[in-house]
Design a protein around this nucleic acid. Structure first.
Length: 462
DNA sequence: TGGGGTTAT
DNA sequence: ATAACCC
């Protein structure tokens, strides 16, 4: 039996369950003395998100095998389709071959997915404000504080406490271990999150509960659709050993796994055992230490609240775009969508960027970009709808384009993208008598560079 | 292979 | 401005 101090007292552990000696603390979580308690992190991952949104939008698609298509790629599909052998990121041709009855919807316009995605994040923020987005369909939530609060409310003789959902490895729970107790409470909160997502938004998904982001994400994927799993400290090594290749480790991507393979490192165990000195020679101190810590399941990166987006972009890919006129037309389309989004957001972008991908024979999709400050006289007009900024903005973007591409030479693009970034809140202008003279944004002279000291924007004449 | 996003250098 | 990472 574990016991809890009555609420009102400082910390929740009673004398009968003294603070754990170091041997009880997970060896790999050992940090300088006096450090904070281990965190409780939940990773929430919606099931085949785009397909779920499409089924909510059009309920007739439910119980049919459904795929979401972008160009020639099937980006995701529902579980009906997966039963029939369809996989994520299949080509459309392979998918139709596998499953001729597959129903396809076009998912190139992300508007509805983006809106639902932010509803999910906002719902999770009701539990704890510390929510970090990862893509449109995953969120990390730091629920340490919420867990501590619940522990203080718990009855000291409460034996009914149990995990919600799966416990990784079917590990037995030790109700005398405060670390177990905290994670069990975390699993109950995760269950409440999933229930809220289902009842209020109609969405299903997985959750993983653990003491850091890496482990929460890995353990959340163990039981797959619409289930949750909690990782207790004793099973951490088993979880990371279950990875068949280091590339499955979040944070180790395509490039890094290739460089590691060149050193003979392909498994988690290889990376754990590898000489830190030699690893440091290859990757530098910061990266090598982070990589090796990941291999032990260690991850001290905080859950960083995402807040509103730092950029908006719209892109389009195609087989061919090779004339100035085509480019201008595509840019105008991308810009029109972006301006709608800017008007909804309320903030104003101060920088615009154009990104292209050239059709190069054997190069992997390498992108080039040019950016510039948006002229200050245009910024207040963005997204207001009363003055049309389209023409001046298209002109700016075409100048960026000609800065990248010599239009006197033949060219062949396969992608165009426009990005608004450096978003700033529109300064509410409360007028005191002196404000007119003191507020920079009301001044008629502009101060180039003042708000973008770190940016080396390409100069575009008006 | 799409249409997004982020951070580090 | 690019390159890496994530989905």
């Amino acid at each position: 039996m574990f016991t809890i101090k009555p609420k009102g007292e400082k910390n929740s552990i009673c004398k009968t369950a003294p603070p754990p000696p170091f041997s009880l603390v997970d060896p790999l979580e050992v940090v300088p003395t006096g450090s904070a308690l281990p965190r409780v992190i939940v990773h929430v991952d919606l099931d085949c998100f785009y397909a779920q949104v499409e089924m909510i939008l059009n309920p007739e698609l439910k119980d049919k095998p459904l795929g979401v298509q972008q160009k020639s790629l099937l980006v995701t599909c529902n579980y009906e389709a997966r039963k029939l052998g369809v996989k994520k990121l299949m080509s459309i041709r392979d998918a139709k071959e596998k499953c001729p009855q597959l129903v396809l919807v076009n998912g190139e316009d992300l508007t509805q997915y983006r809106e639902m995605s932010y509803k999910v994040t906002e719902l999770l923020e009701e539990f704890s404000p510390i929510v970090e987005r990862l893509g449109f369909d995953e969120n990390f939530v730091d629920i340490t504080e919420m867990v501590e609060k619940r522990l203080q409310q718990l009855q000291s003789d409460d034996r009914s406490l149990s995990a919600s959902g799966h416990v990784y490895n079917d590990q037995s729970v030790n109700l005398h271990d405060i670390l177990h107790i905290r994670l069990l409470v975390g699993s109950q909160i995760a269950a409440e999150m999933r229930e809220a997502l289902c009842s209020r938004l109609g969405l299903t998904g997985c959750a993983g509960v653990a003491s850091n982001k890496l482990l929460a994400k890995l353990v959340g994927g163990v039981f797959k659709p619409n289930q949750q799993t909690v990782l207790l400290p004793e099973s951490r090594q088993d979880l990371i050993n279950s990875l068949k290749h280091i590339k499955e480790m979040p944070g180790i991507g395509y490039k890094t796994s290739k460089r590691l393979a060149a050193l003979g490192i392909t498994s988690v165990h290889d990376l754990q055992m590898f000489s830190p000195k030699i690893l440091e020679k290859e990757f530098g101190m910061a990266v090598s230490q982070r990589l090796q810590k990941l291999s032990f399941g260690k991850d001290d990166s905080p859950v960083t609240p995402s807040g509103p987006p730092q950029s908006f972009s719209e892109e389009d890919s195609f087989k061919k775009c090779s004339s100035d006129g085509e480019v201008k037309k595509k840019i105008a389309e991308l810009l029109a969508s972006l301006l709608k989004r800017v008007s909804q957001d309320g903030r104003k972008p101060h920088t615009v960027r154009l990104i292209i991908r050239r059709c190069s024979s054997e190069q992997h999709s390498s992108r080039e970009s040019r950016q510039c400050a948006i002229p200050s006289h245009l910024i207040p007009k963005l997204g207001t709808g009363n003055y049309d900024v389209t023409t001046p903005m298209v002109d700016i973007l075409m100048k960026l384009f000609r800065n990248m591409v010599n239009v006197k030479m033949p060219f062949h693009l396969t992608l165009l993208s426009v990005c608004f970034c450096n978003l700033k809140a529109t300064t509410p202008v409360k007028k005191g008598p002196l404000d007119y003279y003191l507020t920079p944004s009301l001044s008629t002279t502009s101060h180039p560079g003042k708000h973008s000291l770190k940016m080396k924007d390409t100069h575009v004449e008006d």
